[in-house]
């Protein structure tokens, strides 16, 4: 599903990732850990096709993203990847339902019924017409998860998905991820929390832009 081969990403003189190689099989749940500044976000950007490497190869779903055009990267983001952010990143002037429909809109066709079903799955049907500022952090994260999954992506990338959530919402989101994994979706989850990391089949630990440890 995903392969990184000797990937380096430099911002000026700063090398955020250094010669990182990694393979993620279809349906695998990979946890990524590491302290701040270790290169986790850079890795997410490269895997999520939000950025391209300075050197090395990144192959996602058979497409070499380091050689891909802007429009090919856009297509990969749209069709292959579902993103879950630590800070949710919902469009502030759109309702919960509309925030999910935005992902449908850029992917294919907005379908309010299907978007509503996605909200029902994350237990937020009654909050469909609320703006993000009217939702709690946990509710916003659940909308973010529903949005990431609405187009049935092959790979779900989650950056600290439960970092800002209370215990109850954390449990709900992780149960949801477990369900996705059981359904065969590939998951890459960045986390500081060893308990969350332990839910994955494999964990890598980044330090100073390199993979310092890897554990199954």
């Amino acid at each position: 599903m995903l392969e990184l081969e000797s990937v380096t990403k430099a911002y000026g003189n700063l090398r955020a990732l250094k010669e990182v190689s990694l393979r993620v099989a279809p349906g695998e749940w990979l946890s990524v850990m590491g302290p701040s500044g270790s290169g986790k976000t850079t890795l997410m950007n490269l895997v999520g096709c939000l950025d391209t490497p300075t050197s090395g190869r990144v192959v996602l779903d058979g497409v070499e993203t380091n050689r891909a055009s802007r429009s090919e990267l856009t297509r990969l983001r749209r069709d292959t990847v579902g993103l879950v952010f630590q800070r949710f990143h919902l469009v502030p002037h759109l309702t919960a339902l509309e925030n999910i429909m935005v992902a449908q809109y850029y992917h294919s066709l907005p379908d309010a019924k299907q978007a509503m079903e996605a909200l029902e799955r994350v237990g937020l049907a009654d909050r469909a017409k609320h703006l993000p500022r009217e939702l709690s952090g946990g509710e916003q994260q659940r909308v973010c998860v529903a949005r990431a999954l609405i187009n049935y992506p092959k790979l779900v990338l989650a950056d600290e998905p439960v970092g800002n959530l209370d215990e109850d919402n954390e449990r709900r989101v992780l149960e949801f991820f477990a369900g996705l994994h059981a359904d065969g979706t590939t998951l890459v989850v960045v986390t500081h929390d060893p308990k969350v990391a332990a839910l994955g089949q494999r964990t890598i630990v980044l330090e100073h832009g390199r993979i310092a440890k890897e554990a199954a």
């Binding site: 939000l50 856009t74 983001r77 069709d79 992902a103 850029y106």
Partner: peptide
Amino acid sequence: STEIGLRKALGASDAQ
């Protein structure tokens, strides 16, 4: 800009 970035992350093209 964050919202624009988000739209692109969700698959919006530059032209859109």
